[in-house]
């Protein structure tokens, strides 16, 4: 068996608005569009993924929040409806997805062997979170690859961003070990926004783009500072400023997704591909990808 590998890692924000704007058959509400900068970026990334050979998509989501360790999906398939508890008016999505339980169990074991608290999620009634569904739908709308979801252990809130970083890096390294031993080609997905302060009101027409803008200039400046490091391939530096970034922008990086992915990918020192940046209900959202194989990298934006 050949050694498994991570073929791409993506920062893939999951505001349900982008699925709503796409009007897929799976989602009940109907929109007039909106958030095209993000959606077109996602389309471009999805096209790239069609040219890449991979077996499974592994998603780290901040919307499956666990306090007792890190949990992994452990049921072969899920078919249900996901209704966003915050934006139920725009996201009521019927999903039918397959899970790579073998790799999920291997990652869970590797993480446990590394000293982390872990648990497999075996309850077939479990509803997969809308963050996973949104990111996966936008990256692979055909849903023709199995997925794995990893929960977000709430270390930032319970301890500190520094503890979160340490544990997320360890989790990433453990996942990489399991992936390499599996012989599989894997796409990693860090499903979250950057700055994450929302507006608390909503336009009568949610997709009214005349109302959409970043919550405040500070959030924008911080987002750009981080994206600049992405562009330069300075991910060690990006992780180093993560505690301050997270605190200053109430960032969704608090969940640990980006840190986990960088840990799994060995802290890339090459430029990320930037596919788009746009605000959604005030939050800052960047689509970016890190491609280990140098001849597969592009300058997108």
């Amino acid at each position: 068996m050949s050694k498994g590998e991570i073929v791409l890692g993506a920062l893939a924000p999951h505001p349900p608005h982008v699925v709503y704007a796409e009007n897929p058959d799976q989602n009940e509400p109907v929109s007039e569009g909106g958030w095209e900068t993000l959606r077109w970026g996602y389309h471009r990334l999805a096209r790239k993924l069609e040219t890449i050979d991979y077996d499974v998509m592994v998603v780290f989501t901040p919307h499956w929040q666990t306090y007792v360790g890190t949990h992994f999906l452990g049921v072969p398939g899920f078919s249900s409806k996901s209704v966003d508890p915050v934006f139920p008016n725009i996201f009521r999505y019927n999903y039918d997805l397959e899970v790579d339980v073998d790799l999920s169990e291997a990652m869970c074991k590797a993480a446990s062997d590394a000293g982390l608290i872990t648990r497999m999620m075996r309850n077939p009634d479990f509803r997969v979170d809308y963050g996973t569904i949104t990111s996966c739908h936008m990256m692979n709308p055909r849903w023709d690859k199995p997925i794995i979801t990893i929960s977000s252990n709430r270390n930032t809130h319970y301890y500190s961003p520094e503890v979160m970083i340490e544990q997320a890096l360890a989790l990433g390294k453990a996942c990489r070990t399991a992936i390499e031993e599996s012989g599989k080609k894997v796409v990693l997905v860090s499903s979250h926004s950057l700055s994450h302060r929302h507006f608390v009101t909503e336009s009568p027409l949610p997709e009214d783009m005349s109302k959409e803008h970043i919550y405040n200039h500070s959030q924008y400046v911080w987002d750009m500072a981080l994206i600049d490091l992405f562009r330069q391939g300075k991910m060690r530096e990006a992780i180093d400023i993560m505690p301050e970034f997270t605190e200053q922008t109430i960032a969704e990086t608090e969940g640990g997704g980006l840190v986990w992915m960088m840990g799994a990918m060995g802290m890339p020192d090459y430029p990320a591909e930037i596919y788009g940046y746009q605000s959604v209900i005030g939050t800052g959202n960047c689509i970016a990808a890190w491609v280990p194989q140098s001849d597969k990298r592009e300058i997108v934006l």
């Binding site: 499956w64 929040q65 666990t66 306090y67 648990r119 075996r122 309850n123 009634d125």
Partner: peptide, 11 residues
């Protein structure tokens, strides 16, 4: 419903 953390206790 299934709880995020305590899913092993049942549905």
């Amino acid at each position: 419903h299934v709880d995020d953390d305590f899913h092993y206790l049942g549905s």
